[in-house]
Design a protein around this nucleic acid. Structure first.
Length: 490
RNA sequence: CGGGGUGUAGCGCAGCCCGGUUAGCGCACCUGCUUUGGGAGCAGGGGGUCGUGAGUUCGAAUCUCACCACCCCGACCA
């Protein structure tokens, strides 16, 4: 079967690395910490992008593009923001190279030093708010609902394909509002949108809530986040939406005249998801044979493989396959017919399996004689023989069913790995097994850091919906009115 | 940035201790024939700055020194 994938049970992180390579999603590049996203990986990202973009537009947002470079001085304008990002910025200092006087290649031309250094954006709040200053004068100019698809650079010490790379692709929304209420509403609308996307497209159940002060975005008043559980019991932050208050408006002096003719600072939000979602998708669903993709995000949903000995057989099969493909396409399914004679059927089966194509249809002489097809599901590795007659509608149903079952499986796993604990001793024991742990916390950063120090667990979210439950902090015994969600995280 | 490890064909590795024919193996690749319902078999073939630089030596993949890169663990991390 799938060659050279380390089983999950042996070494989860190696399994992940193997899978990314074997499924041909990405590879490390010649540039430290930066990956090459290969066509299959990029095709999945494009599906993610297309759906999110649709959802952003349905909620009134538009796309724009801002510069890759940000003048260094912009960063010092919002104190918490610079504090959070300063340690991982790539900086452009010169704009020209010259031939090495010693004859060895090229060197930086020291005479071409920039007056002011440029930072390669780690996120775009500063350049965008500097721009918004020129766009906003009146309440009539608001709200401004803008999204950008871009690459950003954060100089991470240790990188892993998709999960943490020095350069990554993402979308960042930056909105401006006349009132605090409206900005908070936007922040929540987006975290709900992300939740909808994660659950209904990625088949990934998530917990939604706000971050503790310690885990908050640098420069935000509140950070809303969704957290997903990976198969090794670690949590992965899958998306964040920040209520920025008037912090950036004040830092960049963005004011507007309200209906009463009063000059006010603008209220802001920002929100984003990145190619890290690819990591979540892989780690949440896949198995030791390779990738398992939810049909809604699979670049290829159905693959048809002919099985034949003689050319006449292939011709007959191709005719049937052609008709079937036509029908499937009309039903909105992405399908490919792999009639390459350079690879054998078994090779193709294994190849599409490791790449996560949800449904495989094999057509051979035996099928033609019986008017059937062999239909194989990637998610549960099950084969069925189905009549060709009416096959298309069955495949449509099957893809829905697979989407559902992948979600259900992830949900069952997640639910089986949420534990309530009341004492710190119990917490220390349960956190070892992985999963989300619901416990009472006194709300202080001090206690949170102590827990992190002693158990490596962090507060992933403080739930916003759901019931309040009075209790006592498991560490200090101080009062708490609601359980928060702890986990070890990526 | 600290600790450990690895750099030899596209990939994975052996050879290195104890220097000495033409640097070897598996996969992949190419050609031919036979094959094709779960990663085919046989035969033949192509492909190497042994990470980089210096040194020791008659002779270096092998010994010495320096440097570089990558990986793992830790620290760091929206």
């Amino acid at each position: 079967m799938a060659k050279e994938i380390t089983p999950r049970s042996v070494d989860y992180s190696q399994w992940y690395n193997n899978l990314v390579i074997k499924a041909d999603l990405a590879e490390n590049s010649a540039v430290r910490g930066c990956m090459v996203i290969k066509p299959h990986g990029y095709a999945i990202w494009e599906k993610i992008q297309a759906q999110l973009d649709r959802m952003f537009k349905e909620t009134g947002h538009v796309n724009a593009y801002f510069p890759l470079f940000i003048p260094k001085s912009f960063f010092s304008k919002e104190a918490a923001h610079v504090e959070g990002f300063a340690k991982e910025c790539a900086v452009v200092t010169h704009y020209r190279l010259k031939n090495d006087p010693n004859g060895k290649g090229v060197v930086v031309d020291e005479e071409a030093k920039l007056e002011e250094e440029l930072i390669v954006r780690p996120t775009s709040e500063t350049i965008i708010w500097n721009t918004y200053k020129g766009w906003i004068q009146s309440y009539r100019d608001l709200p401004l609902l803008i999204n950008q698809w871009a690459n950003v650079v954060r100089w991470e010490m240790r990188t892993r394909l998709f999960l943490r790379t020095a350069e990554f692709l993402w979308q960042e929304g930056h909105t401006a509002h006349a009132t605090q209420e409206e900005a908070i509403e936007e922040t929540r609308r987006i975290i709900d949108l992300y939740t909808d996307f994660a659950e209904n497209y990625m088949a990934l159940p998530v917990l939604k809530g706000v971050k503790s002060e310690n885990e908050r975005f640098a420069g935000a008043i509140d950070t809303y986040a969704i957290e997903a559980l990976m198969q090794d019991g670690k949590a992965l932050q899958a998306g964040t939406s920040h209520f920025l208050g008037q912090n950036f408006a004040k830092a960049f002096d963005v004011k507007f005249l309200d209906r009463n003719g009063k000059l006010e600072y603008v209220w802001a939000t920002s929100w984003g998801v990145s190619t890290r979602l690819m990591g979540a998708l892989i780690m949440a669903h896949s198995d030791d044979n390779g990738l398992i993709l939810p049909p809604k995000l699979a670049p290829l949903q159905v693959i048809i493989v002919p099985i034949y000995k003689k050319k006449e057989e292939l011709d007959q099969i191709s005719q049937v396959a052609g008709k079937l493909m036509e029908e499937l396409r009309q039903a909105g399914i992405t399908v490919k017919y792999d009639d390459r004679d350079t690879h054998k059927p078994g090779w193709k089966f294994a190849e599409y399996e490791v790449k996560g194509v949800p449904v495989r249809i094999a057509l051979g002489p035996r099928d033609l004689a019986a008017g059937t097809a062999e239909v194989a599901r990637r998610d549960i590795l099950e084969k069925m023989t189905m009549p060709l007659e009416g096959l298309t509608s069955k495949i449509v149903t099957l893809l829905d069913e697979i989407q559902q079952q992948i979600y259900q499986k992830a949900l069952d796993f997640r639910n089986a790995n949420i534990h309530k604990v009341d004492t710190y001793d119990e917490f220390k024991e349960v956190i070892e097994k992985g999963g989300f742990v619901l416990a009472h916390w006194d709300g202080t950063t001090e206690t949170e850091l102590k827990i992190k120090e002693e158990t490596k667990a962090t507060i992933r979210i403080i739930p916003i919906d759901g019931e309040e439950e009075p209790g006592k902090c498991m560490v200090t015994g101080r009062p708490s009115h609601r359980r928060v969600v702890f986990a070890r995280a990526y």
